[in-house]
């Protein structure tokens, strides 16, 4: 696909934002409740939601890919790459589908995405550990995804409102 300078710039900014968010969420000691290394809350999904609506799926996928790869490079941990890729793309797939449903607001889309994100991560954990023990945490993570999904939905809604008058949002 061909990207204009403006698109490229926006993609860059959004990737940076997503990276910053995933670094920030590393500070949350999720491991106290769920002792699986590599699992994240998925706050970087805010960017995915936003990109999906404003730029469309293709560029949203690009941003996600860049975020996952760069995030793994920054963390110096290739195991985390599997987690973020599987979580990220599960969320992306579900959100692309949900965003096509007219009845749903950003909240519903985000919550569905967050749930898919955590399912993807558990799948990654099952794959990388080679046993099914991580499934034990799936119910907790699904519950948590209601909160994180609502939070990302809220943030995205605020973003859309704030940018409603800029030419970014002009449909």
């Amino acid at each position: 696909m061909k990207l204009t300078t403006k698109q490229l710039t926006l993609c860059g900014i959004l990737t940076t934002l997503a990276l910053a968010l995933s670094v920030a969420e590393n500070q949350i000691p999720l491991s106290l409740a769920i002792p699986i290394p590599g699992i994240k809350l998925g706050l970087a999904n805010i960017v995915t939601v936003f990109a999906l609506y404003v730029l469309g799926p293709a560029q949203a996928v690009l941003i996600l890919l860049a975020r996952c790869l760069l995030g793994a490079v920054f963390a110096g941990n290739m195991n985390a790459l599997l987690f973020s890729l599987m979580g990220g793309f599960a969320a992306m797939g579900v959100m692309i589908l949900l965003s096509r449903l007219r009845g749903l607001s950003v909240y519903g889309v985000s919550i569905g995405g967050a749930a898919a994100h955590n399912c993807g991560q558990i799948a990654a954990a099952v794959l990388s550990l080679g046993n099914t023990a991580p499934l034990y945490y799936l119910p907790i993570l699904l519950g948590v995804s209601l909160l994180t999904g609502a939070l990302t939905g809220l943030m995205a809604a605020c973003l859309f409102r704030a940018l409603a008058h800029t030419d970014l949002m002009k449909g």
């Binding site: 920030a24 969420e25 590393n26 500070q27 949350i28 000691p29 999720l30 491991s31 106290l32 002792p35 699986i36 290394p37 590599g38 706050l43 550990l129 046993n131 939070l151 809220l154 943030m155 605020c158």
Partner: peptide, 25 residues
């Protein structure tokens, strides 16, 4: 909102980092 989110992270965070040693076989 961002400040609130950061504060939230700060409250729950800082406690510790993820311990990769907890996986066991």
């Amino acid at each position: 909102l961002l400040l609130a989110a950061l504060a939230g992270c700060g409250l729950t965070g800082c406690g510790g980092r993820m311990d990769p040693d907890e996986a066991q076989e």
